[in-house]
Amino acid sequence: MKASILFKLGLCSVPNSSRNKYFYQSLGASKGDLFLIKLLKFLRVFLPLLLIVVLVLYFLFPELWYNITHVYEVFRS
């Protein structure tokens, strides 16, 4: 149950800035719980951004995308 609630708090709830910064501590969340919630919130913002960057590079700048994904060839040569 705790895992599903933490997941909901991290991925579904509104961002931290709109509420009291001690909200989760006031509910008795441990440092581990807080870290997990913050990590999930970060991923919720970061992963879609990363996906957009990848899609833009792949479809609009295919050569750049090829260079990035084959960067190891620079070192090999």
């Binding site: 708090l9 509420r19 909200f23 969340a29």
Partner: peptide
């Protein structure tokens, strides 16, 4: 501000301290 988590039910909101 009496904040409640909008994506949790009232039962889950009340239960939060017990879950933690």
């Amino acid at each position: 501000g009496f904040f409640l988590e909008p994506n949790l039910t009232i039962r889950e909101n009340i239960a939060l301290p017990g879950i933690f």
